[in-house]
Design a protein around this nucleic acid. Structure first.
Lengths: 220, 220
DNA sequence: GTCTATACAACGATAGAC
DNA sequence: GTCTATCGTTGTATAGAC
């Protein structure tokens, strides 16, 4: 849908989404949003009585866009669930590169800026994280054959998210990718080690010595 | 030194340091800082011509305080270099708990808020990260006997920092410690695996079969 | 639903007396 | 070095015509 066909409301949400991601919620003025959306400032208050309600609409939209705009293109181009995760991490890297480190993680930025001062938005930010985590958790579930039984898909997904958010923070601060690449390399090494553990375990198994599943949890 | 003995300049820096950490740089007004420091607003401009120069002084102070206020108490109470790292991570957890998630990482918060809009401060924020990383890197160096030769102390230190920053972000967003503890547990598992690798390697060595150090890099 | 004009508060910064 | 008063701007939000 081209901008010309968008409703005024959607134009406002899109403009606000960009500006909040680029310069944060507080520093972005409502007049700036209206200007970017090519909408008069009076109309803004017709749709969004307060600035924070516009923020809520932005965060709801981000939840909707996670699959079609972020995940699906990657899921379509990569089949292996583990590689999907690292392709996603590479996408954030590309975003940093294309924007010359001016854009970080839109949700992470708002998380730090608003968790304390805006409790309602905090909940929506948490929902955005949760959906992201669910997608990664699903990847680990799909790769569970290759992972030790003790591997916890949910816990691994959290580790991927903390690594990404921390890596984006350091990349933007240093304005280079050394820390980002180092963090992702360590994460890769960790997951490779888990896969190798399971590989070795399977290789050591013989058809005659099948163990119970409980005894398989050798690294809890 | 009690507040009464502090110079006006130091009182202003202390007040600003607290407020910037708690509510960010932008949302903190100069009048608020002066009030908290018990100093007249006119005096503020005598010491700091602009708000950003006050910020620079705060960031310089944080660099100075890293050792005596953050690291030294931990280094004094824990000898093992690896346990120092996890004690440090536990300290951030305690800080979150004591402040009911209202305080995050003071540097990480400012990093996200200011990297793009305040290039001068960005450099000082990077220096704060670098000093933190150096301390952790030193821990890994001191534990190098227990780690595989392929383990890169600098890279591991970065991984600790990204984990911490991401974990703090998620803890504050969810207002609970599940994600924080999950991330730290994964990091612990990763480092334990490195130590175990080296332990197994040493156990497999016999006095008669000493290898060259180059062949020891079996997991680069 | 759209637009103009404006109210009201808070901000960083400044001027100038002492 | 300290203090009071204030400038000029910007912010969110509103009022009311069309």
């Amino acid at each position: 849908m081209t901008p010309a066909q968008q409703s005024t409301r959607d134009k406002l949400i899109d403009a606000a989404m960009d500006l909040f991601a680029y310069q944060g919620y507080g520093p972005t003025g409502l007049s700036e949003i209206a200007r970017k959306a090519d909408v008069q400032q009076g109309s803004l208050y017709h749709f969004f009585p307060t600035k924070e309600e516009l923020l809520s609409a932005v965060l709801e939209r981000r939840k909707v866009l996670l699959w079609p705009e972020v995940l699906q293109p990657i899921w379509d181009s990569v089949d292996d669930p583990i590689e999907r995760i690292f392709k996603l991490l590479d996408q954030y890297r590309q975003m940093l590169q294309m924007t010359e480190f001016s854009h970080g993680c839109p949700i992470g930025n708002l998380a730090i800026e608003l968790t304390e001062s805006h409790p309602n938005s905090r909940r929506l930010i948490a929902e955005n994280f949760t959906n992201w985590l669910k997608a990664i958790e699903q990847c680990f579930h799909e790769a569970s054959r290759r992972l030790p039984e003790s591997a916890d898909a949910k816990r691994l997904a959290i580790f991927v998210l903390t690594t990404m958010e921390g890596a984006v923070m350091l990349a933007r601060t240093y304005r280079d990718f050394r820390a980002y690449d180092a963090a992702v390399a360590s994460l890769r090494e960790y997951i490779d080690a888990l896969i190798e553990m399971e590989t070795n375990w399977n290789a050591s198994k013989t058809p005659s010595s099948v163990r119970s599943s409980s005894s398989k949890k050798r690294r809890a």
